[in-house]
Amino acid sequence: GATAVSEWTEYKTADGKTLYYNNRTLESTWEKPQELK
């Protein structure tokens, strides 16, 4: 079967924080998503 690919993209901001963006739900979060833990 196909492996579930994470929908989350990780961005590094200018101040060194990490922003997570979900390509499916168009949601963005500063918290690390469950799927990435």
Rank of each mutant, 00 (worst) to 15 (best):
Q34G: 10
T3A: 14
E7V: 07
S6K: 08
L19W: 15
R24E: 06
E7Q: 06
R24M: 10
E31Q: 08
T9N: 04
L19G: 06
G16K: 02
R24S: 07
P33R: 00
V5M: 13
W8D: 00
S28W: 15
T9A: 06
D15G: 08
K37R: 14
L26K: 15
E35M: 07
E10K: 04
A2G: 13
G16T: 00
T3I: 12
K37N: 13
Y20N: 00
N22W: 02
W30L: 09
E27C: 15
E7F: 07
T9R: 09
T29I: 05
T9E: 09
N23A: 08
T29N: 03
W30R: 05
Y20K: 00
K17H: 07
Q34S: 12
G1S: 13
L36W: 08
K12G: 03
W30S: 10
Y20L: 00
K37W: 14
L19N: 03
P33F: 02
Y21E: 03
V5E: 11
S6T: 10
E31G: 03
Q34A: 15
S6W: 09
T29H: 06
K37T: 12
K17G: 04
K12T: 13
E27L: 06
T29M: 05
N23W: 14
E10A: 11
T13Y: 11
G1L: 14
N22G: 01
W8H: 00
L26G: 15
L26M: 15
Q34W: 11
T3Y: 07
S28I: 15
A2R: 08
G1A: 14
R24L: 13
L19F: 15
T13H: 05
Y20S: 00
K17A: 05
E31D: 11
K17Y: 07
P33Q: 02
Y11D: 01
L36K: 06
R24N: 09
T25Y: 03
G16D: 03
Q34N: 14
R24P: 02
A14Y: 05
T18N: 03
D15R: 03
E7G: 05
E10H: 04
A2W: 11
V5A: 14
E27I: 07
T18Y: 07
D15N: 10
A14M: 09
Y20H: 00
E10R: 04
L26H: 15
K37H: 12
E10F: 08
Y20T: 00
W30T: 10
G1Y: 14
R24Q: 09
A14T: 10
P33T: 02
R24D: 04
E10G: 03
T18P: 03
E31W: 04
A14E: 10
N22E: 01
E10L: 09
S28R: 09
K37E: 13
G16Q: 03
L36I: 08
N23R: 11
N23L: 09
R24F: 12
E27R: 04
T25G: 01
A14D: 08
R24W: 10
S6A: 12
T9Y: 09
T25P: 00
G1T: 14
K37P: 08
V5N: 13
L19D: 01
A4P: 12
P33N: 01
S6Q: 11
V5D: 11
A2P: 14
E31Y: 06
E35G: 09
Y11P: 00
T18R: 03
G16V: 00
T13P: 00
Y11V: 13
E27V: 09
T29V: 10
G16I: 00
K17D: 04
P33W: 02
G16M: 02
Y11F: 14
E10Y: 07
E35H: 07
G16P: 01
K32R: 11
W8E: 00
L19Q: 04
A14V: 11
G1Q: 14
T29L: 05
L19S: 03
T3D: 12
K12A: 07
L36M: 10
A2L: 13
